[in-house]
Write a protein that binds this DNA or RNA. Structure first.
Lengths: 149, 149
DNA sequence: CTCCTACGGTTGCTCAATCAATCGTTCCTC
DNA sequence: GAGGAACGATTGATTGAGCAACCGTAGGAG
């Protein structure tokens, strides 16, 4: 039970920073690009995979969503024709979400919104050394949290 | 678009860590104390005000929620008899949410859950130096974000 | 005093996300 | 092979949160 105010504060600030960044981005994405932050995350993830496609459960795992959440999110993206579903012959249980050309376009339209939170994360106030420190500590936390869950 | 992969990753990891910590806490709070994380935040806020009460809009402002969100959250807490609503005579537009004795009890029951995220944040894997670095960087980010919003 | 604007809170509607249950497919064991 | 367990994804129902519209109260201008 040893209370450590420094660590209490670190936890509060971590959550606060994350929420501020994410909420700010959410708002701009919805207004300017017509997509939620979660939808953007998925499109972005797909765009950064060489094959531009990923299995539903892979998306769920990597982006911290439930499988049903991904199903519905991909439903929405599919209605917009930003992704398409594919079922491979080798295992017809799995479904791939594939980024379409229109999805790429949509992602391109989202760039200004994404850039708008960039100044906070990427401007000179944060040195490369800061970023390295941040990543070092976050890495430790992530490793610990992966073990728990 | 992908100019600085280090910072991209830092942003992703930041969000991921925050989500894992907050979701973990949420789950435990719901299972062990029968309250959502947001409900816990409100109860905790009320418990730390000397008079144990706060106006609806004050709660909304301080805890980054919308007014309607607070209305509904207080509805739920009131159903559990954890808070009560009060309308002061001097201005009958305003409503105070008041922490009840049962609310205090509920908050007490939530303590173990709140401490359960401790191992990740507070064990030896994270040195005091790590925490100091984390807070230094988060502080910069917070300062920057406060200016924006 | 009366109007009328501002304020604080609530309500209707919509939406995204979850859990639990389910469906079809594949794998494994006998 | 045949049967059952495991897997991947989806569906139904519920929930928490948001926006926009609204209601009652307070305060100010004339």
């Amino acid at each position: 039970m040893n209370r450590d105010p420094e660590r209490e504060l670190a936890w509060l600030e971590l959550h606060q920073v994350s929420a501020l960044l994410y909420d700010g981005l959410s708002r701009r994405l919805e207004a300017e690009a017509g997509m939620t932050a979660a939808e953007h995350d998925v499109l972005w993830y797909l765009a950064n995979v060489p094959t531009r496609r990923a299995r539903m459960s892979e998306i769920a795992d990597r982006l911290q969503m439930t499988r049903s959440g991904v199903t519905r999110l991909i439903d929405r993206l599919e209605k917009q024709s930003w992704v398409a579903r594919e079922s491979p012959r080798e295992d017809r249980r799995t479904t791939y979400a594939v980024l379409t050309a229109e999805g790429t376009q949509a992602l391109r339209r989202s760039v200004p919104a994404v850039w708008s939170v960039r100044p906070a994360m990427f401007d000179d106030r944060l040195t490369d050394h800061d970023v390295a420190d941040l990543r070092r500590v976050l890495g430790k936390l992530l490793h610990r949290l992966d073990i728990i869950s």
